[in-house]
Amino acid sequence: MTYSLEGQVAVVTGGARGVGELLARKLSARGANVALVGLEPELLKEVTGRLHTESDWWHADVTDHEAMAQVAAEVKERFGKVDIVVANAGVASGGPFVDSDPQAWRRVIEVNLVGGAVTARAFLPVLLESRGYFLQIASLAAITPAPMMSAYCASKSGVEAFAHCLRAEVGYRGVRVGVGYLSWTDTDMVRGADQDEVMRELRQRLPWPSNRTYPLGPAVDRIVAGIERRSHHVYAQWWLRGMQSVRGCLPAVIGTAGRREMQRFAPRLAGVSKGLVGAGGAADESTRGVRT
């Protein structure tokens, strides 16, 4: 079944750039009113100014429960309802866990996992009223572990499990819950990770098709189509669906192959960047006053 987005109210976190920004534009083009949430006020204002429908923005940290509860109340007051919530806000870091920056590692878990849960907690009351749809953006990283990405993989595995649990809890009350999976997609986050030579080379050595960077537009089109269907699983790249059938074998395979790759790159690992990657990561660090 396909639901019309005309007149629907959609909330998108991490809406200042990347997936969130383009998703807001495509939802608006289909008639949805959009509420953006993020950490970059000037960009959020700029994005909402380009949307075709009634829209607004809120500056808030998705890990702050009180702030997000206030956002949910204000969005409900502003638009009268909420039909769709996309928990998209996310950050990433890379490098060996043993040498990782504890604050950056923890922040990835906080934003991606805790932030998704805080977003759901804040907006579930209004979604229950509208019998709406909650989409948690996960990743290929939820399906397959990857060395040098321990925080990101842990956070995305966590949000996948959280969304599956939530679906069972609220489904009988009319709220549908979905998980969105993306591989490497052309965003500031991925481009930021590629600025590190070791991380870029490691990714290039992954087997096809996981070693490609995919264009943002078609990926977001697939997400929009999933929202229109209120799908339980949304795959931004066609081949990700097939990964579900082999995911049980992947930890053993990656454990063996990854060990060889780590040995190959061992002399260069000390130079891998330890902070959050990309412009979104820089914005998060700037908001928290972290020196880079």
Rank of each mutant, 00 (worst) to 15 (best):
G49L: 05
L240E: 10
H164F: 03
R167P: 10
R17E: 12
A193P: 00
A89C: 10
G80Q: 01
A279R: 15
A163V: 14
P251A: 10
G174E: 09
R176C: 04
P102G: 05
N112R: 08
A142V: 05
T119M: 10
A163I: 09
A87P: 03
G90T: 12
G15Q: 05
P125W: 04
S273L: 04
F265A: 13
Q70M: 09
D99M: 08
D64T: 11
E228G: 12
L5D: 07
V91C: 12
R205M: 12
A283K: 15
E6P: 00
R78G: 02
N211Q: 10
P41E: 14
S130G: 05
S245R: 07
Y152T: 14
G178T: 08
V177H: 03
A138S: 15
A117K: 06
V272N: 04
T287S: 05
M68R: 00
G217F: 02
D99P: 00
P145G: 08
G280P: 00
T53C: 06
T13W: 05
M262Q: 13
S157A: 14
S130Y: 03
L182P: 02
V75Y: 07
F162I: 02
L140S: 09
V179F: 02
E42L: 08
H232S: 15
V220P: 02
G15D: 10
L182R: 02
C249R: 11
A73V: 11
V111F: 02
S155D: 11
P207K: 09
L240H: 08
H233M: 09
T63V: 12
L128K: 14
E110F: 02
A141D: 08
A122V: 14
V19W: 03
Q8F: 00
W184T: 12
G171I: 09
E169G: 12
A154H: 00
S139L: 06
V290F: 04
S100K: 00
R203W: 01
